[in-house]
């Protein structure tokens, strides 16, 4: 197996792992919201938005390949996503 083939396999495996985690997190957030009923729940909002920011980071790092991009782009994206989520959670509190 040459270096390129080895790298390709790692890439394929990482993508599959990322997809599985994203699906599990989607199912988890759906179940959390369903279990909590229809009333206003700040804790539920915090949890599902927290899961969303984890998913967004995974998409950015793995699918969009920010983990291999210039550091400034990855940091800017991460900072923005955390700021946005913090603002949303505060508004739902």
């Amino acid at each position: 197996m040459n270096v390129r083939e080895s790298g390709k396999r790692r890439g394929v495996g990482l993508l599959l792992l990322c997809w599985i985690i994203l699906i599990v997190l989607t199912f988890a957030s759906f179940r959390i919201a369903e279990a909590d009923g229809n009333g206003p729940r700040a804790a539920t909002a915090t949890l599902v938005l927290g899961i969303a920011v984890i998913k967004a980071h995974l998409i950015g790092a793995v699918y969009m390949e920010l983990m291999d991009a210039p550091r400034v782009w990855a940091v800017a994206m991460s900072a923005y996503l955390l700021l946005l989520t913090g603002l949303l959670v505060a508004l739902f509190a």
């Binding site: 759906f30 959390i32 938005l49 699918y63 949303l88």
Partner: peptide, 23 residues
């Protein structure tokens, strides 16, 4: 094109909990 498609994913990842789940 793939980056654009992932952007569409990323936006929906926030839209789904905001509109359907967070109460």
């Amino acid at each position: 094109v793939a980056v654009f498609w992932h952007l569409v994913d990323l936006i929906w990842v926030f839209l789904f909990p905001l509109i359907y789940l967070a109460r």
